[in-house]
Design a protein around this nucleic acid. Structure first.
Lengths: 148, 148
DNA sequence: GTATCTGCAAAACATTTGCAATTCT
DNA sequence: AGAATTGCAAATGTTTTGCAGATAC
């Protein structure tokens, strides 16, 4: 849940430029946030958190930037949620688990032949999303008081 | 894509009553539509199609009814789409494929150990959704003209 | 100085809610 | 009558869009 585990801003800038994406302070901070907070945050959360550091950041910019990142393939969208889209800076194939108690979304490391398939029943596969739902480890233990 | 392949209205009524769900003409028609059109329709589509036969049907009732069916476990929600929720009367485990050309959503019969798992990394699994995206058989063949 | 990036305000949708009217038994 | 169902209209919440102002190279 803490900070400072990802690449430096300079490394991120280099990375974006290699991907052919113009850099800007806002874009770098949004990418940095995604890299450092692997909780699959919503636009709302990203905006709220970054606003404390960048008070002028608008939600529109968060939307624009995430859309750009998705288009460029460096971020992926999760639709495990019915209402809001969540974002994930990890584009390597893995599954996601959503806890129906606390609402958290966790990565699940998973070796599945599904991720390898290129063709199923005559359809060309480009993406594979695996969404699991249930009660997470933490919520199973404590009788659903704390947390949220 | 055609009609008349499902159960009769009387069978559906019996089915709903067995599930402990009060029946009504609207509810029966909505369930019938879902059973006969396995295209994972949105609320919009269900409402539009049924309105031709039942001009007084309101979208609110479609929402209410689908929500009821989901709560009672006889219909499941697909969030493969970013924008709209889709509904599926088939609650047996299977995967879904969405064509990024024509937008159609197809069932994929799939034997996956994922559907059997009850526990992964300490989390209790209640539901498993597998969403694939790519270009469907039909769209691969014809150079993306017709269809929609 | 021209491209791009940003952000406000308004618009566009999907979905939910409150409540009154209707229907069913 | 009494309980459940229905549907309108308004509210909500997320995402998109148009456009003007700011910023960067």
């Amino acid at each position: 849940m803490s900070d400072e585990s990802g690449l430096s801003i300079d490394k991120l800038r280099e990375y974006l430029e290699n991907e052919g994406i113009h850099t800007s302070y806002h874009r770098l901070k949004i990418l940095e946030y995604l890299r450092n907070h692997r909780t699959h945050p919503t636009v709302e959360r990203i905006h709220k958190e970054l606003s404390r550091e960048i008070p002028t950041l608008s939600k529109t910019t968060v939307y624009n930037t995430l859309k750009l990142f998705v288009r460029e393939g460096i971020v992926s969208e999760l639709t495990i949620e019915e209402k809001e889209v969540r974002y994930d800076a990890d584009t390597k194939p893995h599954a996601h688990f959503k806890c129906i108690e606390c609402g958290g979304v966790y990565d699940i490391a998973l070796e599945s032949p599904l991720f390898e398939h290129e063709m199923i029943e005559g359809h060309k596969i480009a993406e594979c999303h695996i969404y699991l739902k249930g009660v997470c480890n933490d919520c199973s233990k404590m009788p659903k008081n704390k947390r949220s």
